[in-house]
């Protein structure tokens, strides 16, 4: 049953892909602005590459969050979910997963291409990809809390960014330093394990917090 709910959630998100592709395009665009601003010297860009890619991924995620719940809230879908027999937080978790599959996963897939364009040393690739694979779901999960709390604010994107960006700091620090360490020949196990631990924490708590946030907005309307 949960699988079929996910199927429809994914299908709906997929059919609205034009909205969801925009953040991905934005990600690529931001990354390619840096060489234009800083100069195309490989020695200059290589140490900055992981930071640039991570900041761009963070911004792209923030851009996509507004779409996570708003439409369904306005259409009354969420109140039907809240009234359904499946626990609400599970449905919210499924929504977050579907959202990540279409906005977070493409960032992971595209990252090697951007890493190449920014002259990232080849030893860093694996830790960048693994880091993004562990880190972008955290961004979506924490972001979901913000999206849930701001679902009724008409121009909620600014508030959402202000609220969520500070919470992204640990992910950014661990994610962006892992490739730098790998480039120095050190295995960035600590960072990746920290990301994994934070993913477990976020996956446990964020759906609960997000469903609570949505419930507050449903009850108050």
């Amino acid at each position: 049953m949960i699988g079929r709910v996910f199927h429809y959630e994914f299908l709906q998100a997929y059919r609205r892909r034009s909205e969801l592709v925009t953040p991905v395009v934005f990600f690529v665009l931001v990354c390619s602005m840096f060489p234009l601003a800083l100069g195309s010297v490989a020695d200059l860009l290589a140490p900055l590459a992981s930071g640039v890619i991570w900041v761009a991924a963070l911004l792209a995620t923030l851009l996509s969050l507004d779409q996570m719940f708003r439409q369904d809230f306005d259409d009354g879908i969420l109140e039907q979910m809240e009234l359904s027999e499946v626990p609400f937080y599970q449905l919210v978790a499924i929504k977050i997963l579907a959202h990540w599959c279409l906005t977070g996963l493409p960032l992971v897939v595209l990252s090697p291409l951007l890493a190449m364009m920014l002259f990232m040393p080849s030893e860093s690739y694996l830790s960048l990809i693994v880091g993004l694979f562990l880190g972008t779901p955290i961004l979506s999960l924490i972001g979901a809390i913000g999206a849930a709390l701001t679902v009724k604010i008409r121009r909620g994107n600014v508030v959402l960014s202000l609220l969520i960006m500070p919470l992204y700091v640990p992910v950014l620090i661990f994610g962006a330093t892992a490739p730098v360490m790998a480039a120095q020949g050190i295995m960035p196990a600590a960072q990746l394990l920290w990301l994994a631990a934070m993913l477990v924490l976020a996956a446990t708590l964020a759906p609960l917090a997000a469903s609570l946030g949505l419930r507050i907005n449903i009850y108050g309307s």
């Binding site: 049953m1 079929r4 709910v5 429809y8 299908l11 709906q12 059919r15 609205r16 439409q71 369904d72 306005d74 259409d75 009354g76 879908i77 109140e79 039907q80 979910m81 009234l83 359904s84 027999e85 499946v86 449905l91």
Partner: peptide, 25 residues
């Protein structure tokens, strides 16, 4: 409960809408 917002998923077909709803219940 049927609210005055019809709770229709606009990007799903009619059949998918009902099938989705029956999953929920």
């Amino acid at each position: 409960y049927l609210g005055h917002r019809p709770a229709i998923r606009h990007h799903l077909t009619l059949y998918e809408n009902l099938s989705w709803y029956s999953c929920l219940s």
